[in-house]
Simulated scan of single mutants.
Amino acid sequence: MSTTPHSSPDPAATDAEAFSRAWQDWHRRHEERRREPLGFLAVTALHWLERTPIHLPGAPGTWRLGEDGPEVELDPGEQLVLGATVITGRHSFGPLTPGTSITAAFLDDGVAGAVEIADRGGRVILRPRRADAPYLAAYPGTPAFPPDPRWRIPARLLPDAPARTSRVGSVVEGLEQEFRSPGVLELELAGTRHRLTAFASEPDGALSVLFRDATSGESTCAVGRWLEVPPPDASGATVLDFTRAVNLPCAYTDHATCPLPPPENRLPVAVEAGERTPISRVTAAS
């Protein structure tokens, strides 16, 4: 009796399938975080806080910028929760650390909400969020290019000593933001070497890159995309997996203050990997 030998699997095909499965799992989890009840898709407005008191539609309190930072005056029966602290009456949040934000939660007729209080370029913004935000409820998901392991590009960190401050513009005219940059990431694309300014991302040494490319404004968001980069090893070696390039919040809503890529992070090649332009977005008038 004759037998037919089984053909050996193609290692390249097997690796591509494993890469695709890992990417699908990553993107599913990323979309789940995006859909969180009080995530960025739940933002309903953007307010620049000044001395003149304002009321936030859909959120408790009257807000103003006081001598020591943002303040809120809550009516009887209203409250906010900041961490483990329940806030009633008048409360001062004190000075905010540049570039940071805090979130005070509330309930409105059983609907969860929160007010994000943030420093952006030395100014204070307020962004109310509600779990019943229309855009969050209707969010259709984000399209992306098919995952292709060829877009997983080796790179090397060329460190600056000491780390420098990178100052970039933002989608808000006149607003600048600062990031700590430990150096540049050198990589090769389409036979040409490029250097991208990297931002410090996590205490473990992970980095991030904000970039534009030839797809920006065509098949991907015009502002650019954001890419998390694993911590470089002792020699500076790491990898840029462009299939995991994601949209910034401003791709989904006008209620954002996203930074712009530094000029040196504008790639002349079409990076057909990662997330594409969202199907819909929130405008300030909506």
Rank of each mutant, 00 (worst) to 15 (best):
A161M: 02
Q24L: 11
F242V: 08
G122I: 15
D204G: 09
R244I: 04
M1R: 08
L157I: 10
R123D: 00
R90S: 04
L187E: 09
T4K: 15
C250Y: 00
F40N: 02
S2H: 07
G205C: 06
S208T: 12
S8C: 06
G89Q: 12
F242D: 07
A22D: 09
P9Y: 07
E73D: 10
L175T: 00
R127K: 00
G122E: 12
H55E: 15
E173S: 08
T197A: 07
R281Y: 01
V86P: 13
L49A: 11
L80F: 09
A251C: 03
P146A: 12
R193A: 11
A13G: 07
G122S: 14
L46H: 01
H55V: 06
T142R: 05
V86R: 15
I102N: 09
V72G: 06
A190W: 10
D204M: 12
E272M: 11
R29I: 06
F179D: 01
L49F: 12
P232A: 11
T103P: 02
L80M: 05
L248N: 15
P147G: 09
T44S: 05
G113C: 00
R51G: 04
C250D: 04
A284L: 04
R276F: 13
R244P: 13
H91E: 08
P232K: 09
E272G: 03
H91L: 04
L80G: 04
I153W: 05
D119N: 14
R156D: 13
C250L: 00
A155W: 03
P263R: 13
E73Q: 13
S235E: 07
G39N: 00
V209A: 04
W63D: 06
L175W: 01
D108A: 15
R51L: 11
D254G: 05
P154R: 03
P11L: 05
T62P: 14
M1H: 13
D25W: 15
P11R: 03
V43A: 08
C221R: 10
G141K: 02
T88I: 10
G113L: 00
L196N: 10
Q24S: 13
I117E: 03
R28T: 15
